[in-house]
Design a protein around this nucleic acid. Structure first.
Length: 643
RNA sequence: GCUGCUGUAGCUCAGUAGGUAGAGCACACCCUUGGUAAGGGUGAGGUCGAUGGUUCGAAUCCAUUCAGCAGCACCA
């Protein structure tokens, strides 16, 4: 006699086991039609799965967010069914719902082509129209193993065999297709609707391990309505326009070429942007009592062996051999170098915290497949610093760092930041007690700083746990920018110490920290964030003076001189072109201010100012435009200082 | 690194039975001196990513290789 508690507080009692579908029908015919699945005791249930015991029940309809996941998961099964119908020799493995869609991994000798995707997608629509009933069933684990062994499906056998022997497993069947699955699914294939589209096919390792065979993964996207699908596709197109690789070329910021894979050729425009950012961070670090240093680009391998980098990352380090048989490595990190500076002379507890910063130019031989525009490169510069401090100072230093980071992100226009807490990895240096201490210290610091973190197990650095500050790019990819790492290991390994108040020598703690992460990646993210339309203080060219005819060239030059002297990055456009042509070109180049000057302006000593993105023009005196530009092009830290 | 796709003028791209290349924009020159998102004309430009092979003949077919793209793996 199941007693069902509903969300409105009411209860329904049934004589016999009942399904969510029946309960929905009892409540009303509208709901019966709309109900797609249920949540029974906080567990996802199929609409037609029998409920035998007392429970709470909530029905899921198309209005629920959970509905999207149902659609996507159903789509994954429909995809697999379609593939098996078209290519029966294929083996199915797994296929979950993911953010914005679904995928299914297949094993097949011959890879799927783009044309195959069209055929598969068509067949998926057929399957939806067939309105096949989706039926849940249960097997004992051994029955499942038997089933898949008989079918000669080794991938599925492996999956099932990983399940404890006495457990039962559920399966879902639709048409001739049957798949091991936790569920839930909707009542029939028709419920998935037609608002889906197969997007791409790519390789993916079985169980995410590069030692395993490679499977063919087909990705799709699925939505509740056709309009949602279209909106998503439009969003992707828009995102593509923001791609920093396209804009970097279009705005003449940088380029890359074969002979220097993973390294950037910065053009004058891009380098101006780069330097503006570097100078900004330099001022902020100086204000926060950091000391800037510079350490060697190449250091003998012995130091990397001592630090542990050689053992852990040796394969990814660029090395050079000298005539006298030494092996030098291009630095992949700055920390060992900073410890060398720290170790010069005896340090007292009075010297701590000691904040050592470097715009550290690092090289890492990243795997070729990891390279991505200027976001993931082999030569990059970190806004790196190491804070040498006592254990007691970890908290206050971490809080100060988090606040500095938030302010800096805000100045660049980022207020929505996700923070991940990564704890000890499997391969690591140092004993568990030290890790306990480091993880606790970092946890306490995040609490003190009022930062919410998501847990990222096993992803810490080999020498310590870390916070990762993550931003999302235009195409929805996540990039780690800032980081804060508590390190009890390297000071030990590299012999950093200080004299404590009691005269004893002690180990300092090192806080590894970066805010932008790599300047290169940061610039890539900025380009996408602003779609190339940088705020004036970052704009490589802040204003262009465009004479209407060549009779005002001389006047244009005189304004150029005074703006240049006022510290504005300004150019003239004296070409023999009409003003409309110049406006168009400098607008597409995303110049924040275009100053048109014709006979009228020359006569009156004014300029006609047109802001990027505006159709209007405002006539103002040369003095007015000078102070306007100075105000608008002021870096945010200097602007707030002036107030 | 793995799987798949791509690689033609500075840029974006066309080149469909293998017969030594074409468009638009950009560029140069000329005309035009034009008031807010493309004025007109003329011209210059490419050993078709690289290497090797098949062929009388290769941008086109095959192999190798490099780079880029997507995803996976990696990311101190």
């Amino acid at each position: 006699m199941p007693k069902i508690a509903l969300p409105d507080g009411s209860e329904r009692v049934y004589e016999n086991p009942v399904t969510a579908a029946q309960i929905a029908a009892d409540i009303g015919p509208g709901l019966a039609k709309a109900a797609l699945a249920a949540v029974v005791n906080d567990e996802n249930w199929d609409i037609n799965r029998v409920i035998e015991e007392d429970c709470t029940l909530r029905l899921i309809t198309a209005k629920d967010d959970a509905c999207l996941e149902l659609i996507r998961h159903d789509c994954a099964h429909i995809l697999a069914e379609a593939v098996l119908e078209l290519y029966p020799e294929t083996q199915v493995t797994i296929g979950p719902a993911i953010e914005s869609g679904f995928y299914y991994d297949f094993y097949r000798e011959k890879p799927f082509s783009i044309d195959d995707l069209d055929a598969i997608e068509k067949r998926m629509h057929d399957i939806v129209d067939r309105n096949e009933e989706i039926i849940r069933g249960e097997w004992s684990r051994d029955e499942a193993v038997e089933f898949y062994k008989k079918r000669n499906e080794p991938f599925k056998v492996e999956l099932v065999e990983a399940i404890p022997a006495n457990e039962t497993v559920s399966y879902y069947a639709q048409g001739a297709f049957i798949d091991l699955c936790r569920g839930p699914h909707m009542a029939s294939t028709k419920k998935a609707g037609h608002a889906f589209k197969l997007m791409k096919v790519a390789g993916a390792y079985w169980r995410g391990d590069s030692n395993n065979p490679m499977l063919q993964r087909i990705y799709g996207t699925a939505w509740t309505t056709e309009a949602d699908l279209q909106a998503y596709l439009t969003m992707l197109e828009e995102a593509e326009k923001r791609d920093h690789r396209k804009l970097g070329k279009a705005l003449n910021l940088f380029h890359m070429q074969e002979e220097a894979t993973g390294s950037i050729f910065w053009h004058p425009n891009g380098w101006t942007l780069y330097r503006e950012i570097e100078n900004y961070v330099r001022r902020r670090l100086d204000a926060a009592d950091y000391q800037e240093v510079k350490t060697p680009q190449m250091i003998d391998r012995s130091l990397w062996e001592a630090s542990g980098h050689w053992e852990k990352f040796g394969e990814n380090m660029f090395t050079a051999n000298t005539q006298d048989d030494k092996t030098l490595a291009l630095k992949p990190m700055n920390c060992p170098g900073h410890v060398q500076i720290y170790r010069q002379g005896v340090k007292s507890y009075r010297d701590l915290p000691l904040r050592m910063a470097e715009f550290g130019s690092c090289h890492r031989n990243e795997p070729s497949g990891a390279l991505h525009g200027i976001m993931r490169v082999r030569a990059f510069t970190q806004d790196d610093a190491h804070i040498f401090c006592t254990e007691e100072q970890i908290n206050s230093e971490s809080v100060a760092f988090c606040n500095l980071l938030k302010e800096i992100y805000k100045d660049f226009g980022f207020t929505d930041i996700r923070v991940k807490f990564s704890d000890r990895p499997e391969v690591r240096a140092g004993d568990d007690a030290t890790w306990d201490k480091a993880e606790q210290a970092l946890t306490a610091a995040t609490q003190a700083a009022g930062i919410k973190t998501s847990h990222n197990p096993g992803e810490g650095a080999f020498y310590g746990p870390k916070l990762e500050f993550v931003l999302t790019d235009a195409i929805g990819r996540d990039w780690q920018c800032g980081t804060l790492q508590a390190d009890f290991i390297l000071p030990e390994r590299l012999g950093a110490e200080y004299v404590a108040i009691d005269g004893q020598r002690k180990r300092p703690v090192m806080l590894h920290r970066a805010i932008l992460g790599s300047l290169e990646r940061w610039i890539g993210i900025l380009i996408e964030q602003y779609a190339g339309k940088m705020p004036p203080w970052l704009s490589p060219v802040q204003a262009v003076i465009a004479p209407i005819t060549e009779t005002t060239n001389e006047y244009a030059n005189s304004i150029y001189q005074s703006l240049k002297q006022a510290g504005i990055r300004v150019q003239t456009d004296l070409r023999n072109e009409k003003i409309g042509y110049k406006i168009r070109e400098h607008s597409t180049s995303k110049i924040p201010f275009i100053l048109a000057v014709g006979a009228r302006e020359a006569e009156a000593g004014t300029v006609a100012v047109r802001r990027l993105g505006s159709q209007n023009q405002e006539v103002m005196s040369v003095n007015e435009i000078t102070s306007l530009l100075q105000a608008e092009c002021m870096p945010p830290d200097l602007a707030s200082k002036g107030k």
